[in-house]
């Protein structure tokens, strides 16, 4: 955790430094340091309960809705502090989130969901442009515009959730398990969309349990284990690391012994 070893922080990107989060007395994140440089796709991997969603809540300022709070460290984006801001102010700084479980507004129409996504944004004209971009990315949302969002299929709901998060024209998009519970073809489609969104200039922080998808999309990845960063490095190198392959890609030997012999020179390891 020595600061000297880290690359200089990118003033334009997301920088999480030594973050501590607790839900009441239960600590959920400990000393998490992470960066998402501008224009990158960065993945955060980890098992259930590792703290991935907690990290995104801390960035978006919604911890208080879960009885949690930041107890140490800080979060900065584009050179300004995010920690301490409330959710609406984070959106105003260009950071939006497609939350875990999609959380679309089921009783509202698809068009109204998109409109809701623009509520924190910058006026009518910007919203109209954002809408065009979203419907370009997801033509199916245009077809279903007048339909109640609760009637959409799981894949369509996920597209709506991502589209809605794009309505405020974010420069940083946080995605919490966007492929969860989707058929392979739809996972593929979502992955392609993430690439496209990124190509259009939006930085993406992608939380996934589906390590194969995430590592294919991301340039850089972090692995969270029980609230701490256990590994991090360029996505390609993590994807070829035996430990990651065994634990997150469902490959590897029949036994579960520690694979100490695996060469991991490129991985930054923070001691737990």
């Amino acid at each position: 955790m020595d600061a000297a070893a880290k690359p200089p922080p990118d003033p334009a990107g997301l920088r999480v430094h030594d973050l501590e989060v607790a839900y009441g007395r239960v600590s959920a994140l400990r000393g998490v340091t992470l960066e998402a440089p501008r224009g990158a796709v960065v993945a955060v991997l980890g098992a259930n309960g590792a703290g991935k969603s907690t990290l995104l809540r801390a960035i978006s300022g919604t911890l208080r809705h879960h009885g949690g709070s930041i107890t140490g460290g800080d979060i900065a984006y584009a050179g300004a502090r995010l920690s301490g801001l409330d959710a609406a102010e984070v959106v105003a700084r260009g950071v939006t989130q497609s939350p875990e479980g999609r959380r679309i507004f089921a009783r509202m129409t698809v068009a109204e969901n998109l409109r809701a996504g623009a509520l924190g944004g910058a006026g009518r004209k910007a919203a109209a442009e954002a809408r065009e971009r979203v419907l370009d990315l997801f033509p199916v949302l245009a077809e279903r515009a007048a339909q109640r969002a609760g009637l959409l299929s799981g894949g369509e709901q996920q597209m709506l959730a991502i589209g809605r998060a794009l309505m405020a024209r974010p420069s940083l998009l946080l995605l919490d398990e966007p492929t969860l519970g989707l058929a392979p073809l739809m996972q593929q489609k979502i992955a392609e969309t993430v690439t496209e969104i990124n190509a259009q200039g939006t930085t993406v922080l992608l939380v996934e349990q589906n390590a194969a998808t995430a590592l294919a999309l991301a340039s850089h990845a972090y692995v969270l284990e029980v609230g701490e960063v256990a590994m991090s490095g360029p996505a390609a190198e993590l994807a070829s690391s035996d430990e990651v392959r065994r634990r997150y890609l469902g490959e590897g030997g029949p036994d579960d012994d520690e694979d100490d012999a695996a060469p991991r020179p490129v991985l930054t390891r923070w001691a737990g």
């Binding site: 919604t62 959106v91 959380r103 509202m108 809701a116 924190g120």
Partner: peptide, 17 residues
Amino acid sequence: VAMRAAAEDHETAALMG
């Protein structure tokens, strides 16, 4: 729209700004 979004899901409405 803000009102209905907040009524349906407080946290997600906050996420929308």
